[in-house]
Computed example of a mutant assay.
Amino acid sequence: MPRRLIPFLDDNMHRLGLLRAVGPLYQFRHAELHDHLAASASPPTGKP
């Protein structure tokens, strides 16, 4: 994970067209990318 997430999103992901800014939020432009990332993410365990 980048140390400075918002600058990373602004500079890279938004510029490449992978994200779009909707007000203060970012959304994935491609549903397939969103689904892929959601499927590969492990659910939180609740442990620190």
Results as ranks from 00 to 15, higher is better:
T45V: 01
P2F: 03
S40D: 08
D10R: 11
M13F: 04
F28W: 15
L5C: 02
R20N: 01
A21T: 08
K47M: 08
P48V: 08
E32H: 12
S42K: 05
L16W: 10
T45K: 03
P44V: 01
P44R: 01
A31M: 13
D11E: 15
P2Q: 03
M1G: 14
N12F: 14
G17M: 12
H36P: 01
F8Y: 15
P7W: 05
A31W: 09
I6T: 13
R15G: 03
L25T: 13
L33S: 07
L18Q: 01
G17P: 03
R15T: 15
D10C: 06
D35C: 09
Y26M: 01
P43Q: 13
P43M: 11
F8M: 14
A41Q: 09
G17K: 12
F28A: 09
D10H: 12
S42Y: 02
L18W: 09
P7R: 02
P43G: 05
P44Y: 02
R4Y: 12
P24S: 04
L33M: 12
R3E: 11
N12G: 07
G23E: 06
H14L: 15
Q27V: 14
R4M: 09
A31H: 13
L37H: 08
L37P: 04
L9H: 09
L9S: 06
Y26T: 01
R29Y: 10
H34R: 15
L18D: 00
F8I: 09
V22R: 11
H30R: 10
G23S: 08
R4W: 11
M13D: 02
R20P: 02
R29G: 10
P7E: 06
A21C: 07
G17H: 13
Y26L: 03
H14S: 10
M13Y: 03
L37N: 04
P24N: 04
P24R: 07
R3G: 09
S42D: 05
F8E: 14
P7K: 03
N12A: 11
G46T: 06
P7L: 04
L19Q: 06
R20T: 05
V22Y: 06
A41N: 05
L16Y: 11
G23C: 05
A39P: 02
S40Y: 08
L33F: 09
S40T: 15
A39V: 05
G17N: 11
D11G: 05
R3Q: 08
E32N: 11
L25D: 14
D35L: 12
H30F: 11
A39S: 10
R3V: 03
D10S: 06
L5M: 08
Q27N: 07
M13G: 00
R15L: 12
P48W: 00
A39C: 04
A31P: 06
P2V: 04
E32Q: 12
L9P: 02
L16V: 01
F28M: 10
I6H: 09
R3F: 04
D11I: 07
L5Y: 02
L25E: 13
A31K: 15
L18V: 07
K47D: 13
H36I: 10
P24L: 03
R3S: 07
G46K: 06
L18Y: 10
D11V: 08
D35Y: 08
S42E: 11
L16M: 07
P43E: 14
H36D: 10
H36F: 15
R4C: 04
P44F: 02
R29H: 12
P2I: 00
L19E: 06
H34N: 13
H14W: 05
L25M: 13
D10N: 13
S42P: 00
S40P: 00
L25H: 14
P2W: 01
P44T: 01
T45F: 00
